[in-house]
Amino acid sequence: MPIIINLDKVLEERNMKSNELADIVGITTANLSILKTGKAKAVRFSTLEAICEALECQPGDILEYQP
């Protein structure tokens, strides 16, 4: 899929661990791992909103389109 998830990069910049983000967002670490590895088929707006709120970033910081 040409959509790249840069969640690891943003997490590192914010000095935040995956399980902390999962707790804040309210999803399981397994689901967050699916998202990070790019195995997810879709992302809900509510999840994206919660991630952006927790990481204080824009959706474009997390998602990147690579043709």
Binding site: L32, I34, L35, A42, V43, R44
Partner: peptide, 8 residues
């Protein structure tokens, strides 16, 4: 079902 399960 697979798609639904992989929707985060």
């Amino acid at each position: 079902k697979e798609e639904n399960e992989l929707t985060i």
